[in-house]
Structure formats: C-alpha cells, structure tokens
Design a protein around this nucleic acid. Structure first.
Lengths: 337, 337
DNA sequence: AGGCTAAATGTGACCGCTAACATGAACAGG
DNA sequence: CCTGTTCATGTTAGCGGTCACATTTAGCCT
C-alpha cells in the first residue's frame, strides 16, 4: 500500500511550502484565495488527511477525552455516554471510552492509567459509587474531571440529578395519597444515588410523622422480584413502596402479579428512572424521570468549558420529574379494600 | 504546571541514553537488569508516562480502533460496544466510539471521516442497515472493518446472528403449538436483521403450508403498542404473533392487556432479543435470545486477528436460542376458547 | 521612482519517540 | 597479547505536523 501523503507531498503538488499547506489546514486568514484553492485541490487529488498524532505531538494537545463508565449495560450510562460523545465531537474532540468495574480498585486504576497514557484532556466519570471517585481524582493530576450523578462536592465539576428531591417527591406523592406504611427499597449503600434517594425518602417520612423502613437492594431486576415475593404484606397494612430504580420496580410488580396482589388496589408502587418499558408494564409505573440526554449534554458542556478555559459554573443539578401513572392510587381506609 | 517528563529527562536521571530508556519501555531483551531497574526507578520518581502521540508518529501505528454505532440507546449496541472495548483494551488497543444516525448518509460519512482522521487501524460497525455498510466500506480504504449483525457477505469480516434461523425457530414454535394464522410484525425493511427474520418466518410458514402475513414495524415500543391496539383480532381466528424484537413485543403485550385479550389464552406472542425485562413482563415473553456479549467478543477477536495478521476465519455466526416462557401456548381448536 | 508598511509565503528547529546504525566493553580463542 | 564476537549502550535521523522568525511580494503615499 502506498504511504499516506503528508504536508510536504501536498506542498510539492501545489508548488508552495509545507508551511503554506499547514496554514490552509488551520484556516490562517493571511492566505491568498488563489493559493488556498490550489492547495485544497492538491490535498483532494492526493487524498491527503492530516496526521493527528503529529499534530498532537507538536501542539501537546491530543483532543482526546475519556469516559470512564461502570461495567454494566444499563441504559442510563450508555445513554449518557452516547450523548456526551456527540457533544464532544461537535467541538472536535475524540472520545475514548473505558469500561470498568467500579467495585474493583485495580480495574478502576487500570482504566484510568489506560486513558492517561493517551493524554486525555478531560475525563467524564459515570461510576456513581462513592469510593471510585476519590481514587480517580487523585490519579488524574491536573486533568479536569466531571462526574455524572455521582459524588457531589462544591469544588469540582459535577452534574447530578437531585436524588434527594426525587426521593422526597416520590415519598410525598405516596403520603399525599394517604399511605402511612411506606417502605423504601434502596440501591446499594455505596452508591451516591442510592443514599441520596433514601435520604429524601427518610426526611419526608419523618416530616410526615411516619416511620421510615428501608430494605437494601442492588438495582437488579431479579432482586426487585425476589423482594416482592418475600416481603410480608399481612402484618401491618403495608400499602406502598418507593423503589429506588425502575428495574427493581418492574421485578417487584411482577412478583405482585404472581402473588395475586393488586397494584394499585392493595399496594402502590413508585419507581425511579422512567425507563421506556416503565410506561408499558402492568400496571404502568409511576416513577421519577431522569433525563439522561440532558445529563450527558450538560456534563460535556461543563467539561469542555473547563478545558477551553471558559469560566462558567461548575455544578449542575437536574430535578427529576414525577411521572404519575397507574401503579399508585389512594390508600384504602385502615385495612385494604 | 511543570511539563511532563520525556525520555530524555528519564535518561538524565538514570544516567543512560534516551535510547536505553526506550529499550526499557519496549522490553528489549538485551538490557542489563541493573540498568533496567535504575531506569525504572527514574521513571517512577519523575512520574514519567510515555507519550503515545509521539510513539504513534514514529511507528505510524496508532493502536486505535473505531466503533461506529447507530444513534440509539438500545441495549444491544451498547452492550456489544462495551464488550468490544474490554476485549480491545486487553490487547492494548484504544477504542474511540462514534455515534451516528445510519439513515443519514452525511452523518455516517462525517462519523467515518472523524475516525479516519485519528488513524484508526480497525473499525467495528454496529449499524445494521443495508445502506450504511456499503458507504462505509468504500470510505475506509484498507482499514479492516468488522460488521456486527449486519450485512452478510462471504468476503468480509462479519459476526452475525443467524436471524433467518431465529425467525424460523420462532415461527416453527408457533406452528408446533398448532397455530395456523401467525402474523409477523417486522422491523424496518432496510435493516438486515429485519429482512432476515422476516425471511425465516416466511419460509417456515410456506413450508408448513400457511400463508405469511407481515406488518412492518420500526422496533419501537410505542409502535408495538399501537399495532397491538389496532390489529383486528376478530376476523379470522388470528391466534399468534411473531414480533421482530422484544421492545415491540412488550408494547404489544401491553395493548393486549388493555384490550382484555388473554395472552397466551387467546393470542400467543413470541419476541426476539431476550431483554432482561422480557422475563418479567406479563406474561413473561417467549423470545429468541441474542448473546450480545459473545457477539461483541467475537467481532473484536476477528478484527484483531485481521489487524495483527493472524489468519483465522472471517465470518462468524451465532444461533439465537429459543427461550420458552408463558406468552405462548397451544392454539385453541378452530375458534378461540 | 523611492521608500515604507502590510500581506503572503518560505526556512529551520522542535515536539517525544523509535529504527538503524555506530561504538565501546567484555570475553573467548589462538 | 591481539583479534573476532557478542552484549550493552550511545548517536543520528526521521515520523508529520507547528511555531517563531526570515524573506519576498504587493500596495500605497509622496
């Protein structure tokens, strides 16, 4: 295969110096239109493509961004990553993704090391566990890092969903419907989203003079299902569940159907995320919508502003919307209908 | 910020020449252990990190791979991309993803151009539309391309699910249960997966002496739902649907519930994909499982073999598994129960 | 026409790394 | 003790761009 042409080849073909070619590439203003078109023609005929490695070397600027994403196929992270990539590309940046297992410190470190070798100029982290974030911030040196829906600190770039207010809204909705015994099925304790949602739940329960009760889950569909099968619904007029994500909620609803318990007749259920499926399950799930696209876009915008030295805010917070569907209804008086 | 150290800095610190440092980096055999550890120490204390742009320039080898993925947040593509990335990283390659809208030729071209500028050494395409693939193969020159579950040709790298046999198995399952009027709700015509599944369906229907009938869908949940609401179930003892993906099937099941039509009592439904939710919808969906992880791994393995010059096969095909759940049952005699 | 300024283009060095070749030290055999 | 090998290391050039600066050309005024 014949080697790729470089600026010198183009220069010869266009009868100009290599620097002139470089000027054309970089849209330098002081170049005669006539020369410019001659160079452009030469580039076209030779099939010239600038070598980004060479440019990166000369400028010490790689135009690369990294996305560190947790090791799952959940739609949330995938969607955020996807939209971040689009936003970055629009600004001429390349996005290198790197999947990690956030519970394994070695995996996290290897992932970062991998990205740092590349010379990334910014990093987005979609790994919403408390531990991982600290490790990451230490390793990247002066590379800006934006976290998505994760650690929440005033001094760092972060876009997050206001999980506290989401948890609170979910709970308040159930309280408003007259429910008294509301149980929260949470995510794992070491996820920031999880603790914030639980905190919103707890605060709202206490404010309403109710007793919070939390069952720890792990985001998994199968776990929601299992808890749904096991939970004791006889003892004390248990009438509502706020479940920390839709996947567990979908599993939970399935368990209710299997047990012949009517939702929302006997039990009301609120989820969190608003997956597409949530509107089509049985019954359609009341939930809190997270706008992953918006989250991804804002995160990338924060990161790019930081890289390009624009001032701007460092924190951004999205409020999830309560989407009321059929899985919640007013509580029956004292005992179930 | 102090500039990143380079090999010369390390060389000075270790009192060797820069080339010796380079040799240590590249694990050259002829280096005295004593010298090597001295260099290693110097690198450690200076916090040296090799500059990949410089290496790429010197070697004309970027170690970059591209993934072109269609513009959706479906779990299939996300999962495949994710597993391809892991496999590539294990071999020291970097993966740059690029989301495109495969129905928009400009978007496809821009995406490829973006990746080609980087100097990718291989490309994986997860954009299962007929048109896109041809455009892509033309643009990449001699860069190897692997397609996932897409165009299927004997002369190119490709991993695909045997959609024909999947469509056939789904249909045969319904035929075996005694259904006579089986309708297929397909994906869009310009997707290869779509036409292959439909072909499997049609062939099996004809073999069984039945009349195929296809309604064209578009993969969307909402479309499955809409078709489910609109479809005429009275006229001719319509008793079974083979739906080209689980998302549409989930929407369809929802419509059946809303219309009070019992599944599988009156109508049997088979999907395709085996999403996690499919096992937890109502009723749990009979479907064909696609192993996205395996698909991603095999695709990357094919691509890397090609890049690294190993011989090996060029085509790989996975057979989807029929997963029988509760949404299918034997047909009632003549008219519905 | 001469002289001055601005616009357009050319020249050389350098970014950090590796390949190819050159050199030096250590050691063997005669 | 000298030469021929081998091993370990050093030296130089070049990958394909960009920058800083040098040079040429063009435009304008007097």
């Amino acid at each position: 295969m014949p080697k790729q042409p470089n600026i010198y080849d183009v220069a010869v073909a266009a009868k100009v110096s290599h620097q002139t070619v470089s000027r054309v590439i970089n849209h330098s203003p002081s170049i005669k239109p006539e020369t410019k078109s001659r160079v452009l023609l030469a580039m076209e005929t030779l099939g010239y493509r600038p070598n980004l490695a060479a440019r990166a070397l000369a400028l010490s600027k790689t135009n690369m961004l990294g996305i560190l994403t947790s090791d799952t196929d959940f739609t949330g992270p995938a969607s955020m990553a996807h939209h971040m990539e689009s936003a970055a590309r629009a600004q001429g940046f390349f996005v290198v993704t790197c999947g990690i297992d956030p519970s394994d410190e070695k995996s996290v470190k290897d992932g970062i090391e991998h990205l740092m070798k590349l010379g990334i100029e910014g990093l987005a982290v979609i790994a919403p566990q408390l531990e991982a974030v600290e490790v990451i911030r230490k390793m990247v040196g002066s590379v800006p890092v934006v976290t998505l829906d994760s650690m929440y600190r005033m001094d760092e770039l972060a876009v997050s969903v206001d999980n506290f207010s989401g948890g609170s809204a979910a709970t308040q909705h159930l309280v408003d419907l007259g429910h008294r015994n509301i149980v929260h099925i949470s995510g794992p304790k070491n996820w920031f989203e999880s603790t914030a949602r639980a905190a919103g739940y707890t605060a709202t329960m206490l404010t309403a003079g109710l007793t919070p009760r939390v069952i720890e889950g792990d985001w998994e569909l199968s776990t929601g299902h299992r808890i749904g099968l096991e939970v004791n619904l006889e003892s004390k007029a248990l009438s509502a569940f706020f479940i920390a994500n839709d996947r567990m909620a979908i599993g939970f609803l399935h368990a209710m159907r299997q047990r012949g318990i009517s939702v929302p007749g006997q039990v009301s259920v609120v989820g969190f995320d608003d997956l597409e499926e949530s509107g089509y399950c049985w019954p359609p799930l009341t939930t809190l919508r997270q706008d992953f696209k918006e989250l991804g876009n804002r995160a990338m915008s924060l990161l790019l502003d930081e890289i390009l030295g624009k001032p701007g805010r460092k924190l951004d917070r999205l409020i999830p919307d309560l989407v009321i569907r059929d899985s919640t209804a007013a509580a029956a008086e004292s005992t179930g209908q």
